[in-house]
Simulated scan of single mutants.
Amino acid sequence: MIGKDSRYAAIPVRSRTRSDGSEVRHLRPVLLPHYEDVPIAANHRVKDSERIDLLSAQYFRQATAWWVIAAASPHPHPDAVLGEPGDTVAIPLLGAGEVGPR
């Protein structure tokens, strides 16, 4: 069940019927923009022991919006987004590249 406040709430649900007659429901796949196309609001210098969810809470007031920072990163895994202390991470404009119907 997807809550009304979920980032996935506006994505259409699709279904298909298997050969045994059972139905499989899923969300339509969503393509995020290329990280170089995401508008950047700030660049943050990473400090020791920082986490992506805490940066999200700091910049967006939503720890669960960490994926917005990850979408603006060239790194494919969220654990690699922040890199090492002293590295810079791009903080995108909240709402830029947001998941939703197209």
Rank of each mutant, 00 (worst) to 15 (best):
S73N: 02
S56C: 02
S6Q: 11
P76N: 09
S6C: 06
G86W: 06
S49L: 08
P101L: 01
G100D: 08
G83S: 00
D79A: 10
H77Q: 12
S19G: 09
K47R: 06
H34F: 02
E23L: 03
R51A: 14
H75F: 12
A42M: 05
E36W: 07
P33I: 00
L82M: 04
V81N: 11
S19F: 14
F60C: 04
V46S: 01
E84V: 12
Q62F: 02
P12A: 03
P74R: 04
P12Q: 02
D5V: 15
A57Q: 07
H34C: 11
H26Q: 04
A72R: 04
H34T: 04
P92F: 04
P74G: 08
V46K: 00
R25G: 09
G86H: 08
L94P: 06
P29T: 08
R102G: 15
L27E: 04
D48F: 12
L32G: 12
V89C: 07
R16V: 14
S15D: 15
W66M: 05
L55I: 00
E36M: 14
D79P: 01
E36T: 05
V24F: 00
K47L: 06
R14M: 11
W67Y: 01
L31H: 07
D5Q: 07
R14D: 15
H75Y: 08
A80N: 14
T17K: 14
I69D: 06
V30C: 06
S6D: 03
R45K: 11
R7V: 14
W66I: 07
A63M: 10
H77C: 05
V81A: 04
V89P: 01
I69Y: 00
S15R: 11
R51N: 03
T64E: 02
F60N: 13
W66P: 03
I2Q: 00
R51H: 10
K47Y: 09
R51I: 02
V13R: 12
A65F: 00
N43R: 13
P76E: 02
P78Y: 05
V13P: 14
T64C: 10
P78N: 08
R28V: 14
L55T: 02
P74M: 05
I52T: 01
D37E: 09
I91H: 10
